[in-house]
């Protein structure tokens, strides 16, 4: 399991990244954390001719933003995001999901943007980005481009990023339009730390009476890309999230999806556990928000 030969460019700044992408042709590939790319290369399932290393690009690291959005630069380590008070405050769903990503050692190297660009259908970070309707920025020699997450994931590990584009930042909208926010993240996997069979992400905002004013629900592992489940989200709106409503809403999720089987789970298992994970994530989010409502 040794990678095929490649040439290597360590980019010092974003301009250099874009230049290298422009020059490199279709077989060049960006390496960020490399936690997915390197095993693929070791198995020779990926064989870029040139690797452009963006780990030394300072512009691509850091966590910032303002009241309306949390901005995570693409090459920010997952571990840094996990430890960031700003992430916890502004995108608590992401903070929660990060703990499910691989293991501490892979989070020390893996990046937030890398996971999104890699677009694994069961990966947690793309799922959260989709749930929260994150905005993406990509840059190429031709300039910067904003990409809405809803059109980003094209298929199994395929995105709308062009071959000469580098994902530079992810903007997670902060839900501060009123209401008390609660988040839920649930996944079913065979072992802890494995890729999920099915993962569900939920963010809710409740008013002071516990009535749901806003809801976002998405599932991973049930389609070639992560999937927003609008029907479920809509069914929660204006309800006080009683068990029955939540159960019905989760059931809708199972109808929205058409999962496939693999060695770890049948399609039916995915469909059924999708319902369960959505239900549990909603209840988790509700209870978290209600806990906040109860606080003075």
């Amino acid at each position: 399991m040794k990678a095929a030969a490649f040439d290597y460019i360590r980019a010092g700044d974003l301009a250099e990244v874009c230049r290298a992408l422009d020059d490199g042709g279709p077989d060049c590939k960006i390496i960020a954390g490399g936690q997915t790319l390197v095993p693929m290369m070791a198995m020779r399932l990926a064989r870029p001719s040139i690797l452009i290393d963006i780990n030394a690009v300072g512009e691509l690291q850091g966590i910032g933003g303002d009241e309306t959005s949390l901005v995570i630069k693409a090459c920010t380590r997952q571990a840094a995001a996990e430890r960031s008070p700003e992430v916890r405050a502004k995108a608590p769903l992401l903070a929660k999901a990060l703990r499910f990503v691989g293991h501490p050692q892979t989070r020390n190297r893996g990046t937030v943007g890398g996971s999104i660009a890699n677009a694994d259908p069961v990966a947690e970070i793309p799922l959260v980005a989709l749930t929260l309707d994150a905005g993406l920025v990509a840059e190429s020699a031709g300039g910067a481009r904003n990409i809405g997450i809803s059109g980003f994931f094209h298929g199994l590990m395929e995105t709308s990023l062009a071959a000469d584009e580098c994902l530079t930042e992810v903007r997670f909208p902060v839900w501060n339009g009123g209401g008390i926010v609660g988040t839920g993240f649930r996944e079913v996997s065979i072992r802890a730390g494995d890729f999920a069979i099915v993962a569900a992400a939920v963010q809710l905002a409740l008013d002071e009476n516990g009535v749901c004013k806003r809801a976002a629900v998405a599932l991973g592992g049930v389609a070639p890309t992560p999937l927003r489940i609008e029907a479920t989200a809509e069914a929660l709106l204006s309800s006080d999230l009683d068990a029955k409503t939540v159960g019905e809403a989760a059931r809708l999720a199972a109808h929205e999806i058409d999962p496939v089987a693999d060695v770890h789970a049948s399609a039916e298992y995915r469909r059924r556990t999708a319902r369960v994970m959505v239900e549990r994530a909603i209840l988790e989010a509700r209870d978290e928000a209600l806990g906040r409502v109860a606080k003075p």
């Binding site: 990678a3 290597y8 490399g34 936690q35 390197v38 095993p39 070791a42 690797l51 501490p104 050692q105 892979t106 020390n108 190297r109």
Partner: peptide, 8 residues
């Protein structure tokens, strides 16, 4: 701590 097989 990191995995040294996942870095060049």
């Amino acid at each position: 701590p990191i995995r040294s097989c996942l870095m060049f």
